[in-house]
Amino acid sequence: MDSIISTFHIDWKIIIAQALNFGVVFVVLYIFALKPLSKLMAERSQNIRKGIDDAKTNAALLSETRAEYDAAIVKAKSEADKIFQEGKKEAEQKRTIMLEDAKKEVAAMVEGGKKTLEAEKVKMVEEAKSEIVNLAMLATEKLIKSKQDLNSLS
């Protein structure tokens, strides 16, 4: 053992000095480099992880919103179609009612016209009859008068 110590000049004072050197390096490196750098790297990793998580959440939200949008569009289309069909049906009904009313009105007007025409015809026939009677009477009067004249002449 002594030969090793003397050959290699092993000196406990230098060993302690070297240990102190290492201690100083450890403290300085830990305080000024390792701790802040590790903290910074951990924060960066956390930020990146948070960014990835946020991106995933946003992607999920976007897909959900897109699905909702598509569903809303489909629903709106179906509602619009329904409203259109209802409107069409209502318009058809109204058209039918109006057509029927118009037909009834036309029928009533035709009926009225017919009645007026019939009345006019009857009136005209009666007027014609009275005219004929008058004419016949006039003719008869004239005949009688002319006969009387002839008689008087004769």
Binding site: I15, Q18, A19, F22
Partner: peptide, 8 residues
């Protein structure tokens, strides 16, 4: 130096 390596 063996003193350094021995310390470490």
């Amino acid at each position: 130096d063996i003193n350094t390596t021995l310390a470490l």
